[in-house]
């Protein structure tokens, strides 16, 4: 009961905060300079005119109008199918990333030498912009042939999602696998349990509270990777391409790009939602304090 009330309160606060953002946007449109403001010769204040900053209502109503003049395809259909396309790529990337990340974590937990050799690179890789590889990886599309399998362009985007997803997942899972208390490990030893038995009966269940936040990072990494791949190479079909295309039309149809931007936001939130649901599922029987 208490829990439900708190959830309702949080939702309400979230809605209020969204409305505050809307209010600030509209307020700036009233008081802000129409053609941007300069301080010491540098333009820091954005233009408040309707071309640069359309009204929120214009953005929302844009959804019900056709994508291009004369077409009978409403823009919300286009944005939705673009987001759906990117979502599928992100899911592929996420699942590949999970497989590789968890696999590496198991390997590192099993063999100290692998952990010693690999972990510094994993930590370092969090700090270097791997995303710079996006155009490179996407350029494999259509050119690379492995036997009779021709590498499709969309797979490159997913692979990029995998790149960004698997590092946090590997590190988080490793931390979780090593979090099993020494006494519990000793207990399993006293049962003469095999390493595999200890892994599945003790280490993995103990790792869940660490894996959930790692998966959250991984999920948003997968989305970022896919969208960046789409944007940097203009990969057709996804939400990233729509954003780039619509941004070019911004002088004539300023609200259009926002429909796609909101689509990208929805995409990220849906991926996060999947992880949040699995969090609730896996942690349902755990003591409430330990849900980190």
């Amino acid at each position: 009961m208490k829990f439900a009330r708190r959830a309702a309160y949080r939702t309400a606060m979230f809605v209020v905060s969204i409305f505050s953002v809307v209010a600030i946007w509209e307020l700036y449109k009233i008081i802000g300079p129409q053609d941007g403001g300069k301080f010491f010769g540098v333009s820091v204040l954005p233009r408040a005119n309707n071309t640069a900053m359309p009204h929120i209502s214009t953005m929302l109503s844009r959804y019900s109008r056709p994508e291009v003049r004369g077409s009978d395809k409403k823009i919300w259909v286009v944005v939705l199918s673009g987001a759906w396309f990117s979502l599928r790529l992100s899911l592929v990337g996420f699942f590949l990333g999970t497989t590789i990340g968890v696999g590496l974590a198991i390997l590192m937990a099993r063999f100290k030498i692998v952990q010693r050799g690999l972990l510094p690179y994993l930590v370092m890789s969090q700090t270097v912009p791997l995303i710079a590889l996006a155009p490179l990886v996407v350029s494999w599309g259509g050119k690379l042939e492995i036997g009779s399998f021709v590498w499709p362009r969309w797979l490159s985007a997913s692979i990029l999602g995998t790149f960004l997803a698997f590092f946090p997942i590997a590190v988080g899972t490793l931390r979780g696998l090593s979090s099993a208390p020494a006494a519990a490990v000793e207990l399993m030893e006293s049962y003469a349990a095999s390493w595999k038995q200890t892994l599945f009966k003790l280490r993995f269940p103990a790792a869940v509270p660490f894996m959930v936040p790692a998966f959250k990072l991984g999920a948003s990494g997968a989305v970022v990777g896919v969208v960046v791949a789409e944007i940097s190479t203009g990969l057709k079909g996804g939400i990233g391409r729509l954003i780039i295309e619509y941004a070019r039309e911004a002088t004539g149809d300023p609200a259009k790009v926002f429909t796609a931007v909101f689509g990208a936001a929805a995409l990220g939130l849906i991926m996060a939602g999947f992880v949040a649901i699995s969090d609730v599922f896996f942690m349902r029987n755990r003591p409430k304090e330990s849900s980190i």
Binding site: A184, L187, L202, P205, R286, P287, S290
Partner: peptide, 9 residues
């Protein structure tokens, strides 16, 4: 052991 060490899950 001193701690019951039961598995939470």
């Amino acid at each position: 052991f001193q701690q019951a060490g039961l598995f939470d899950w």
